Simulated scan of single mutants.
Amino acid sequence: MTKREVHASVKDERLVQKRREQMIKGAVALFKQKGFHRTTTREIAKAAGFSIGTLYEYIRTKEDVLYLVCDQIYDHVRERLDQALDHKKGTLESLKVGIANFYHVMDEMQEEVLIMYQEVKSLSKDALPYVLKKEIEMVAMFENLLNDCVENGELSITEKQVKIIAHDIFVQGQMWAFRRWALRKLFTLEEYIDLQTQVLFSGLGQLHGKS
């Protein structure tokens, strides 16, 4: 899917990236405290450390910020999974690395993930499909990792099994973000990753054996 363009009048790409990162950080803190609708663009500008006039050089609407949060999460996940693809592509080890990297992203970006799902209902009807499509694209990254393993003979599972397993991996990663307040009382992040991966690979082994 074509990346949605968020208008900026500033042409310096590095400056745009820097300002938008400041904006996202400030907005996430405000959205968490007050919610999307009660937060004003002026408050976002202040939290980001610049004027309202400067803010509108980098976005057009408050809704653009949610797009930017979503894109930032997607870009981080894609970057981490690309690292996994470079690590013994098409092997179970590559799949393990991809899962671990994804869970680490969910931990590092917990606040952004929570805000995205809490406030997605605030998006307009024409904007919502874009954000939901981004999530499907992230799930598809795991489908690709699994399909690489199938093509390489590491796994023997059906196309439908690939799809449901990819969603399972994605939801388990989200669960750490949504339930970290409870889970980290029981497990470290690494323990959580190890346990979830053990359960997944146990199931994959049974599926592989039946094929």
Rank of each mutant, 00 (worst) to 15 (best):
N101W: 00
P129M: 04
K133H: 13
P129I: 07
K163A: 06
F142A: 06
K134E: 02
E151C: 06
K121P: 11
D148N: 14
C149F: 01
K160N: 13
V113D: 03
S122H: 15
E119L: 05
M116F: 09
E143F: 01
A140C: 04
M106T: 03
H104A: 08
E111C: 06
L114G: 06
T158G: 14
I157F: 00
V162P: 00
Y130D: 01
L155C: 07
V120L: 13
K121H: 12
F142N: 09
N144R: 15
M138L: 13
I157G: 07
I157R: 01
K133L: 11
L123Q: 06
S124H: 08
N101Y: 02
I164R: 14
K121I: 11
I136V: 07
N147I: 03
L128F: 08
Y117S: 10
L155S: 08
V131D: 00
V105F: 01
Q118R: 15
L123K: 06
S156G: 12
V150R: 14
Y130K: 15
V162C: 14
I164L: 10
Y103A: 05
Q118V: 04
M116G: 05
C149A: 14
L155T: 04
E137A: 11
E119R: 07
E135N: 15
N144Y: 06
V150H: 02
I115V: 12
Q118K: 10
V162A: 10
V162Q: 02
T158K: 14
M109I: 03
E154Q: 12
E159L: 08
E111K: 13
V120M: 15
N152V: 03
L132K: 15
L114W: 00
E137P: 09
L145G: 04
I115G: 11
Y103E: 00
V139I: 11
C149T: 07
L145I: 01
E151P: 00
Q161M: 08
S124P: 03
N144L: 07
N152H: 14
V139H: 09
D126S: 13
Y103N: 06
T158L: 09
N101P: 03
E159F: 02
M106G: 11
D107T: 12
K125H: 07
L123E: 00
K134V: 13
E137Q: 15
E143G: 11
L146A: 08
Y130G: 15
E119K: 07
K133F: 10
K134G: 15
E159K: 14
L145E: 00
P129R: 09
L123P: 01
Y130N: 12
K160H: 07
L128A: 13
H104Y: 05
N152R: 14
L128P: 03
D148F: 05
V105A: 07
Q161C: 09
K121G: 08
D107H: 11
V162E: 00
Y130F: 09
A127D: 07
H104D: 03
S156Q: 12
D148R: 15
S122F: 03
D148S: 10
Q110F: 02
